[in-house]
Nucleic acid binder design. Sequence first.
DNA 1: CTTCCGATTTAGTCATGGCTAAGTTATATC
DNA 2: GATATAACTTAGCCATGACTAAATCGGAAG
Lengths: 232, 232
Amino acid sequence: MTKSEDRTITPAIEDYLKTIYVLQQELVAVTTTAIAERLNFAAPSVTNMLKKLADLHLVHYTPYQGVELTPAGEKVALEVIRHHRLLELYLIEALGYSWDQVHDEADRLEHVISEQFEERIDIALGRPTLDPHGDPIPTKDGNLPAADETRLVDLEVGQSAVIVRVAGGADVLRYVASLGLLPQITVHVLDRAPFNGPLTVRVGEERHALGRELAEYIFVAPVMERVKTKGD
Amino acid sequence: MTKSEDRTITPAIEDYLKTIYVLQQELVAVTTTAIAERLNFAAPSVTNMLKKLADLHLVHYTPYQGVELTPAGEKVALEVIRHHRLLELYLIEALGYSWDQVHDEADRLEHVISEQFEERIDIALGRPTLDPHGDPIPTKDGNLPAADETRLVDLEVGQSAVIVRVAGGADVLRYVASLGLLPQITVHVLDRAPFNGPLTVRVGEERHALGRELAEYIFVAPVMERVKTKGD
DNA sequence: CTTCCGATTTAGTCATGGCTAAGTTATATC
DNA sequence: GATATAACTTAGCCATGACTAAATCGGAAG
């Protein structure tokens, strides 16, 4: 009856493709080392896998140069990312997870849920387009609406913005959440210390100093509110 | 403080322990071959794993004799079974799966969900005690209330009973469901053909002939209603 | 042009967990 | 008691996917 599928795509392969997809959006070239760092693997392990992915026609791999997803590879990556983001949203909305607890759970579940499971939670959530971090959820046919990509670190003193999403791992999410910096929240930039020093921001009644690196993880939608001179 | 994970327990180990647990309830001795058949593995693969499980003190293994779970092994088995049964119920209750679709999904999910996930769906379901097949759900501290174990095949002609659960794989479940033989449903035994022949049962307005083997998979709670005469 | 160094790949190892082929054990039967 | 046979184990193989150590590439500096 339902005989097992062509299990060429393993969880490990899915993780690599997902990582490469994300890195492609951050970097000009996706290198072995960048992948190794992101996945916490040794570089040779990555080289190994890249050769395998190339054999499977999931990436274009040029030794010493880097990799790029093929359309087939991108399709797999987007499916995994769709699973991940739907799961994160479902865990929060349906099961009451908190914002910073969902990532690890989704990382494990994303590899094992069926098409049916995906479809059922998609329906249960009302076919959402954004995940809890504000990232767009790829559609079933592999389209990903681009998100705004202004970073908190790029704002000028005096500007305000609404947090859209926060990148980075669970530790970053937890810390950022503890400061009240959650999606939908408005922040005001009070100061930018020189020499790559911290940003001081106001969130509600509180003030926090954020390292530059941290502020690169926080993506915002700028609010062009009345600044100094009477704006239009 | 949640202790850091003892990653000695792999999904493969969980599958073996779960299978051994189930077989212990069905058989006097759990043999290599019985495990191999249930898991669809070759016998030597099982022998191999049994040695590993014995090293981990999860089973008592006597070569050529069979295995038995240790308390530690039983604990793991019950945790996995708890995951499985909670998941099956959740898939049906919360996500609208049908009765015969849940097994495979639960088989994959049971190995990856966290304690938190288990707790959340347990709460969402109102801390249930029976899964959709009528099997009891082990408690978090590893207790499993015994279920009634009368089989449909053991009923006399003229007896009626309510189906409690159906054992067997997805193919059995699917077929049995297609006959309308679902938990909560009442069946009436109309005939038992001699020489191990089929049972004829009435379900609602329909009659079906069931092989003896199939009728062994169907567990019932007998109903002592008025005895009827033969024929009709 | 050479030299150096970090990035990368090659080579070879290990654990997991399947497999087949071939021996060994237990046991039922003559 | 001898032996056939099914059950079981041993031995050895394979793919995955991680690792370290060592060679190699390639770009920036001298």
